[in-house]
């Protein structure tokens, strides 16, 4: 099976700064691939390469087995790679259905006179959100009145509806509470069920372990580990991510302080 998305020995430099070195990544279709990394590990640079904001300095970037050259996020989007950024891609004061169709408005009319097909967009938004398990009271309400988790969910549903083959999620749960995070994770799985390859970028191994099929560990610009779900435990993942020995030393220090 060809990978939905693949990086081979990718390196990214900004002047003399090595942001990423020898990074390889394989993302299978209809799966959840988690990239775990602490602050400063290079997660943001990786996302920006995948979403078409930056180009890799050296190395291979393939989408469905073909070399990908993206000049902009729009390019990436046209090739089926959608990114839901951490700072949310929604406009708080606009209604849910307007947000859902923003940039992809359905219009009706004749000749040069075109106007929005409001009822059709409301219906589709409601149905599509329901298909993802998001049951909203009213798609007319401003999206700012939804919770953070629900807003992320709408952004995910929107990407899926507009034909994303690969969905990149930038820290979707980092700003959310426990329950809200659970809601988002549910929609991550819903997207996978619909055949989307999800790249879930996070610093939270607990959230990753709940939904991931494959895990990559990113540290100081290098991929330091790759695990498949069948042969890894949460403890192992947490430890590896926090740098094993370092965390043990820290635990000891904290224990001393608490006495």
């Amino acid at each position: 099976m060809t990978n939905a998305l693949e990086l081979k020995d990718v390196e990214k430099t900004f002047g003399s700064v090595l942001a990423l070195r020898g990074v390889s990544l394989e993302v299978a279709p209809a799966s959840v691939t988690c990239v775990l990394g602490d602050n400063g590990a290079g997660k943001s640079t990786l996302i920006k390469i995948l979403s078409g904001v930056h180009k890799q300095s050296t190395g291979l970037f393939q989408v469905e087995g073909k070399d990908a050259v993206f000049d902009s996020p729009r390019d990436a989007l046209a090739n089926g790679i959608a990114t839901v950024f951490q700072d949310l891609a929604t406009i708080p004061l606009m209604s849910v259905w307007r947000n859902f169709f923003l940039g992809n408005e359905i219009r009706t009319g004749f000749g040069p006179f075109k106007w929005l097909d409001v009822n059709k967009m409301k219906d589709i938004a409601k149905q599509e959100l329901l298909a993802m398990g998001i049951d909203l009271r009213d798609t007319n309400q401003p999206i700012g009145t939804l919770s953070g988790g629900e807003r992320q969910a709408v952004a995910i549903a929107r990407a899926v509806h507009f034909g994303a083959k690969v969905l990149i999620l930038d820290e979707p749960t980092s700003a959310l509470g426990v329950r809200q995070s659970g809601i988002v994770l549910k929609y991550v799985l819903a997207a996978k069920e619909r055949g989307v390859a999800v790249v879930f970028i996070t610093h939270n191994p607990h959230h990753a372990y709940l939904v991931g099929d494959r895990f990559y560990l990113l540290n100081r610009g290098r991929m330091i580990g790759r695990y498949e779900r069948d042969n890894v435990q949460l403890e192992e993942l947490t430890k590896a991510m926090a740098g094993g020995a370092e965390l043990e030393a820290l635990t000891h220090e904290i224990a001393v302080v608490r006495k």
Binding site: L77, D87, L88, A89, T90, I91, P92, L102, G103, N104
Partner: peptide, 12 residues
């Protein structure tokens, strides 16, 4: 007017 960055991300 609501959020220029989010609008740009959505393709506006």
């Amino acid at each position: 007017g609501g959020d220029a960055n989010a609008a740009r991300n959505a393709g506006v």
